[in-house]
Design a binder for these strands. Structure first.
Length: 650
DNA sequence: GAGCACTGC
């Protein structure tokens, strides 16, 4: 069956990685249709594919309590459906919420819809994300991150302010979306039982595999919307590739030698190190290309890159040059780059898993799912038709798992379980998850919460303690929340608030490997013999002393963006502490108190150090260590350490 | 002496 009707752009560079063609036959595709920036906004709205379906769509949505909506990128579903509902009076008694997994999406979508409604953002149309609430009493269409709506549900489990909740990007299956599924389903049922205004739930997905959604929401009907995705030609390798990096390199230069220079290439890879290595190799080879082959601009893209360098992916390459972007899966959803004509998919991704027995997190390279491979391919067809070169055979693709395992089945559930309890869910052990986590993962999470004193078991029931209730009010991992709550006992709440803020954002340290010596020299100034936490605290204090000066950050290899985030988190945590009447005080030079407090909050592993993270990559790592005394640990959790340190012989 | 995908409250 496989044949080779249309060989790849070139095979001059190195034979052996020839692709053959397969038809891109995902449903719901339209031929290219160009948008027009000068078209008035209400005409633009009517040109969207969804506009044709508006009457039937509203008819259906008016009657249904639940609906699943499949719409591809460009269908206009996210911006139009909330407006259609509002304009036709559906859900007028309350607010229509549209959830998004990402902050930027919530913010920009709200901006777009406000513009279409010709109103000021924050009036009829608004958004709520962490640290930012642009809504008012007038707001009827509210874009919100799923995590934010979940937090809101702790104060109002029936979501009574809302008449419609639209869960967008549901196919991504973030932990927050998954928990929300259960929360809205419960709220719907309870509101019916209590004779309150009904809650309409619309689940929106960009992929076809929605049986689970439909099944979960009482076999609710599935509605289809045409998108504006352009055709994408898929190519597979004829033979399995033993070295996907080598295969990627060959493919980049094959395309480079044949395709017009204005056609940019996006390569999906797994991480910073291999991206930087391949970038160097590409640049070296590009210097020695035959005549007639244009120059190449190679741009790495991954999340830990400083913002200024991330922005380079949006700059067009100089005329006659080709842009080649080497990216992690950040370009799958979070960063959208225009002008991509070719996608090269290595078929690999780095993903985190959690082992509930050992408490060990594993970050490892693995194969992508089919859904993820389609998502990657789709990045080539955003403005025009494109091509996707898969560095694996069609048989290999057939053996990929259909969908990425939902995050809720891969992560530490301690925070999720605590949140469910705070929501007043009666039987958390048997919560109605759409995709159930393993019983071990649930049990391990509840045990962890028990050790932290957040829950207690009574007559087979798991109950939230007063401490647990306070812990749930912090937007933090439970152990961090507990550490803060304990800090008043050690008179060091000021310091602990700073340290927990530092630990709860991505690293504030920026360490370009090429400048290793300089980095070490700069860091030395802040290093504390008492451990990483104290070092971080030193850095934070120095940062505040210079009022967050950006030059200072650059000179000291500090990531200023993350540092600003630390400040915002710290302010938020402080506010919560004040609401809980927690005394804020500093321990001054008595740093032993800080470490003692850390030991009490984060004791969950071997004695003598407490750590921030236990992670397995090529080796097993403990990150962010802090020296503690063994008897502090025994003092913190006598039962736990009595068992772990002196195992009973049988 | 080597290292860490991506979000979010």
């Amino acid at each position: 069956m496989p044949h080779d009707p249309d060989p790849p752009p070139a095979k001059k560079f190195k034979p052996g990685s020839v692709f053959f063609r397969s038809d891109y036959n995902k449903p719901g595709m339209l031929l290219p249709r160009k948008g027009n920036a000068t078209t008035p906004i209400d005409i633009q709205r009517k040109q969207l594919p969804i506009y044709q379906a508006k009457p039937q769509l509203l008819n259906q949505l008016r009657q249904l309590h639940n609906a699943i909506l499949i719409g591809e990128t460009g269908s206009g579903k996210t911006t139009q459906i909330p407006q259609y509902l509002y304009e036709s009076g559906i859900g007028r008694q309350g607010i229509i919420a549209i959830t998004q997994p990402r902050r930027v999406a919530a913010i920009s979508l709200a901006g777009r819809v406000a513009e279409e409604k010709r109103t000021q953002l924050g009036k009829l149309v608004g958004y709520t994300v962490r640290f930012e609430d642009v809504t008012s009493w007038e707001t009827k269409l509210k874009f919100v991150t799923d995590g934010m709506l979940l937090r809101e549900a702790i104060g109002d489990p029936l979501l009574l302010r809302y008449t419609v909740v639209i869960l967008d990007e549901a196919h991504e299956r973030t932990v927050h979306t998954d928990v929300l599924f259960g929360v809205v389903k419960t709220a719907q049922r309870r509101r019916r039982e209590l004779n309150k205004i009904p809650l309409k739930v619309i689940v929106m997905s960009a992929t076809m595999d929605v049986d689970l959604f439909s099944e979960y929401f009482n076999k609710s009907p599935v509605l289809y919307l045409e998108g504006r995705q352009h055709p994408i030609q898929i190519y597979y390798t004829k033979q399995p590739q033993s070295d996907y990096l080598q295969a990627a390199l060959v493919s980049v230069f094959q395309i480079h030698q044949e395709a017009p220079p204005s056609h940019d290439i996006l390569v999906f890879m797994t991480g910073q190190e291999e991206i930087e290595a391949l970038a160097r190799t590409c640049r070296d080879i590009a210097k020695h290309l035959p005549d007639g082959c244009g120059p190449m601009v190679v741009i790495p893209l991954y999340a830990s890159l400083p913002p200024a360098q991330q922005l380079r992916v949006f700059q067009p390459a100089p005329k006659g040059s080709r842009k080649v972007i080497l990216s992690t899966n950040i370009a799958e959803t979070s960063v959208t780059i225009s002008g991509i004509k070719y996608v090269i998919d290595t078929g690999m991704v780095k993903a985190k898993r959690f082992n509930p027995d050992s408490g060990l997190e594993v970050l490892a390279v693995q194969q992508v799912s089919k859904a993820q491979a389609w998502q990657r391919a789709g990045r080539a067809g955003r403005e025009d038709s494109g091509s996707c070169y898969r560095l694996y055979t069609e048989q290999e693709f057939d053996n990929f798992i259909p969908m990425t395992v939902p995050e809720i089945q891969r992560c530490n559930l301690a925070g999720v379980m605590l949140q469910l309890m705070a929501l007043g869910i009666p039987d958390v052990m048997n919560f109605d998850f759409m995709s159930k986590p393993s019983p071990e993962a649930i049990r391990s999470a509840v045990e962890h919460l028990e050790l932290l004193g957040a829950v207690e078991k009574k007559e087979g029931q798991v109950l939230l303690t007063a401490l647990g209730k306070k812990m749930a009010s912090f937007p933090l991992e439970p152990r961090y929340a507990r550490t803060i709550l304990l800090s008043t006992d050690f008179s060091c709440s000021e310091e602990i608030l700073s340290i927990v803020s530092l630990l709860s954002v991505n690293s504030v340290l920026y360490s370009p490997p090429a400048r290793r010596e300089e980095v070490l020299a700069a860091r030395k100034k802040f290093t504390s013999s008492e451990g990483d936490h104290m070092t971080l605290l030193n850095i934070y204090r120095a940062f505040k002393k210079v009022s967050g000066n950006k030059d200072w950050c650059r000179e000291n290899f500090i990531n200023s963006r993350n540092m600003v985030l630390v400040k915002e988190v710290q302010a938020q945590l402080k506010e919560i502490c004040l609401k809980l009447n927690l005394k804020l005080e500093s321990c001054g030079a008595n740093t032993g108190n800080i470490r003692r407090c850390l030991a009490h909050g984060m004791f969950a592993k071997p004695a003598y150090v407490v750590f921030n993270e236990l992670l397995q990559t090529s080796h097993c790592y403990m990150r962010d260590l802090c020296l503690v005394d063994a008897d502090w640990l025994l003092d913190a959790a006598p039962e736990y350490f009595g068992r772990k340190l002196h195992p009973v012989k049988r």
